[in-house]
Simulated scan of single mutants.
Amino acid sequence: MDSAAAGLTFRDATGADVGVLVALIESAYRGDASRVGWTTEADILKGQRTYPERIHALIESPGSRMLTVERDGAAVACCQLEHRGDHAYFGMFAVSPTLQGAGLGRAVLAEAERAARTVWGVLEMRMTVISAREDLIAWYERRGYRRTGLMSPFPYGDERVGIPQRDDLEFELLVKPLV
């Protein structure tokens, strides 16, 4: 086990985790707190990244898991996994900004891939990433994800996903075989 994974506990989130997970996700992506880490979207999106109702729905949804990652009893990372037939979807990934860049995200992603393979038997992980996030896409590429060139529109006008600061946002599908 690498040092970043040492002392981590991985578990499925419960309803009691909703507030902590919303705060963690917000801190990793939006506002000034997110600028401590490198995964911030603060320059391209304002507003909230998620809401308690959304996290609660992900926790309760059949075929979905909200993985909570703790160190010394405190939530330090999370991600959502969704079983979609022959593949799993990976999303809502957040690592505490003060812990980014030390390998924690890599350890969480590896555990998510392992869980998708063993629990659901899927052979591929998929995700969508804002195509303007070249640094983040490069990080996923170094972990075996492949850009597909398949784009989907950003939901302009839906403030539940944030308030865009640019007019060129779209999502690109990334895929990785889990063999």
Rank of each mutant, 00 (worst) to 15 (best):
S34G: 05
R142M: 15
G63V: 05
A138F: 11
T128Q: 10
D167T: 15
V179R: 13
G37F: 03
G15N: 07
V69H: 06
F93Q: 01
G37W: 02
L21D: 05
V20N: 08
A110S: 15
F171E: 05
L109F: 01
G121N: 04
S34N: 02
V76Q: 00
A4I: 07
G91Q: 00
A138V: 14
V95C: 01
A23M: 14
G105D: 00
R84N: 09
G47S: 07
G121W: 09
E41Y: 06
A75Q: 10
A75S: 15
P153A: 13
L45D: 02
G31W: 03
E70T: 09
A112E: 02
A16Q: 10
G37P: 06
G85C: 07
D43W: 08
A94Q: 01
A42D: 09
D167Q: 15
G149T: 07
D135H: 15
V161G: 13
M66Q: 15
E172A: 04
G85I: 12
A16L: 07
T14V: 04
M1L: 13
D167W: 05
P177L: 10
R65S: 08
H83D: 03
T68F: 09
P177F: 10
W139V: 07
V129G: 01
E82V: 05
R142A: 15
S61Y: 11
C79I: 02
L58N: 10
Q165I: 06
I59P: 11
V36P: 00
P97M: 04
I55C: 07
R142G: 14
D32H: 11
A107L: 07
A88G: 06
P164Q: 12
A74P: 03
G31F: 02
R160G: 11
T148F: 12
D32G: 12
S34Q: 03
L24D: 04
I44A: 06
R146P: 00
A4Y: 04
P155V: 06
M66W: 14
T118H: 12
G101P: 09
I137V: 13
P177G: 13
D167I: 09
G19F: 11
E53D: 14
G144Q: 03
W120M: 01
R117S: 10
Y29M: 04
D2R: 07
P52E: 15
E170R: 12
E170Q: 13
E141L: 14
E41L: 11
M1S: 14
Y89L: 11
T40V: 04
D135P: 07
D158I: 09
R142P: 09
L136V: 12
A4C: 09
I130N: 03
S152C: 03
R30F: 02
W38N: 12
F93L: 10
D72S: 09
E113R: 01
T68H: 11
V18W: 06
W139S: 10
A23H: 15
D72R: 06
F154S: 02
S64L: 02
A74E: 11
R35E: 09
G105A: 02
D135C: 10
A13Q: 05
G15A: 10
V95I: 05
L104S: 01
L45G: 01
R147S: 15
V36W: 02
F90E: 00
A102Q: 12
L136G: 03
G121K: 08
A94D: 03
W38I: 09
R106T: 12
V108N: 00
V108F: 01
Y89Q: 03
T40C: 04
R35I: 04
A115C: 13
